[in-house]
Nucleic acid binder design. Sequence first.
DNA 1: AAAAGTGTCAACCGCAATGCA
DNA 2: GTGCATTGCGGTTGACACTTT
Length: 327
Amino acid sequence: MRKPDPNMPKNNTSTTNKMKLRKGLWSPEEDEKLMKYMLTNGQGCWSDIAKNAGLQRCGKSCRLRWINYLRPDLKRGAFSPQEEELIIHLHSILGNRWSQIAARLPGRTDNEIKNFWNSTLKKRLKNNTSTSSSPNNSDSSEPRDVVGGIFPLHEHHAMTFCMDSISSSSTISMPPMVTGNQFDPFPLLNINRYDITGGAAGLLDVPTCLAQGGLGEALYGDYGVLEPGKIALEGDFSLPPLESRSIEEGNTAINSIDRKSNNNNHHHHHNNNTCFNNTDQSFKVGEAFGLENHHWEGENLRMGEWDLEGLMDNISSFPNFLDFQVE
DNA sequence: AAAAGTGTCAACCGCAATGCA
DNA sequence: GTGCATTGCGGTTGACACTTT
């Protein structure tokens, strides 16, 4: 971890453009500026964000900070055993495609997963390998068909491994980001709230607007379309959420599309697409997601609680759940 | 108690892909 | 077709924390 630059000026709003861009750790003041700006204006061109937020940072640095640390939907905290299993499994198929792995772990970033893999899982699997007779190398950056040199991962076998190794009542949770009926932009301050319980199986209400785009795409992704408003948690059809298009991207995914379709519009899109409320940072989920008719309020809201067992079960009957066909 | 070794993780770097003029 | 800006990704670095000697 790098120290915040001690040379950083305290007052830095005026001579921004002439000043050399800062590097290193972000100060709380910088975090606050970026967070405030993002909450107010939503996502746009990162270099503009850096300038407009009064940060002596390059856009790239701002993007990274937002994605890896400030984003409201980050889960943070230790990885659950279920998440570990999922990472191991996905890595066995995807290799070091961290962003794709992260896309299937709600609230987790590619950087976080990469670090976790390199610091923990890789060693653990290596130990497993060394104690087994398999010569397979778990350090490979290429997709493998073996986990830890033990588990064959050809297609449904891989799924069998996953399902078998995941405890029966396990669920993983996305950060609810909601306190009462209000959006919590600082879930990292409330890590303990995240629900890791055996949730009720059945249908989870999902905002219609998310099903139609944004998070909806995350939920249904490339795999098909369900009736807007419902996700089958057990039985019919449930798939790993593509986290890269999850809550925050429930708005930014739209913004992203917006950017692609009209690159000049990103200064305006917060009016239509951004889910953060300009005038009230407490952000009303119902309003932003069009939830008035759904059960997404108050204590009942359990956004992103996924029955991992059901999830994997469904994956197993859906071999093309990844972005590409496993060979 | 102090030094050395090790682990963790935030942030940087370089590259590739993409979009636009 | 070309050049530039921007974004996204994976590999790597380095500071700090923690553990071991």
